[in-house]
Simulated scan of single mutants.
Amino acid sequence: MNNMEHFIDNMHLDSQLTLEDIPDLNLYMDQVIQLFENKFAASKRNDDEKVLTKTMINNYAKGKLFFPVKNKKYSREHLMLISMIYQMKGALSINDVKQTLEKLNENITDKAFNLQDFYDCYLKLDRDNVDQFSKAVHQHSDAVHEKVKHLDDDDKKYLEQLLMVAVMTNMSNYYRRAAEKMVDAIGKEEKGHQK
């Protein structure tokens, strides 16, 4: 594929809700939605796509994906958790996200866990992941180009794109399946502690 840097830049992989983006005061739901819409608008696939809606937030609350809100206001901790949910739900089921975050939510409410330090680690790892992803996409692109260049076909560009889609979906599936296995391990450990 031509101009891989432009392709990767247009994905806006650096869109992330940073600690500096999160206000020190609690927000109402409409303010939360606006904050996320402003932060992640560039990463949407199209203009009709919604980053976050009232229904999504209500479903997360009803599903106990984050600890209860007070006076209909969302704290900094809620925003950090919603940001993680936003990222995880693209690959995991809502039940898997809930199971993954369940103990973290308990630690926040029961043990006064410092979510800010944890979230900062998450953001740093995400920046590293963007770099690794960019390198991997370039490697995949080079490999696909090598495989296709000997084909006698007028539609090599399409064939390259097709193979890149296949390679990226395969990689995505590998990572999703690995994450699901880890979620299952978290579930088994939690059940073991409850006995």
Rank of each mutant, 00 (worst) to 15 (best):
K157V: 13
M164I: 11
F66K: 00
N107T: 13
D155M: 12
N105K: 11
K111F: 14
F7D: 06
H6P: 01
D48N: 15
M164W: 01
A112C: 05
D30G: 02
H193W: 03
D47R: 15
L35T: 08
D21G: 03
D152N: 12
I33Y: 14
K64Y: 06
T53D: 08
L162E: 09
A143W: 07
D120F: 05
M1T: 12
I85G: 00
D154Y: 13
M11D: 05
A41S: 12
Y74F: 00
G192N: 10
K70T: 09
K135E: 15
K188A: 08
Q194A: 11
E190M: 14
R176A: 09
E49R: 15
I85Q: 00
K135A: 12
D21I: 03
K89T: 03
I85D: 02
E106M: 11
K54G: 15
N129K: 14
C121N: 08
Y86P: 00
A143I: 05
I57W: 07
Q139F: 14
L92Q: 06
E180M: 07
A136W: 05
T169R: 12
E146A: 12
G187Q: 15
N129I: 15
R45A: 09
G63C: 11
N26T: 09
M164P: 11
L81Q: 01
M168E: 06
D30K: 09
P23E: 01
I94T: 00
D24P: 05
Q87M: 14
M182K: 13
N107Q: 15
E160Y: 08
L162V: 09
K62M: 04
K64C: 07
K188N: 07
G63D: 14
S141R: 13
Y86S: 01
V51T: 13
C121Y: 05
S75H: 00
V97H: 01
A61P: 05
C121S: 13
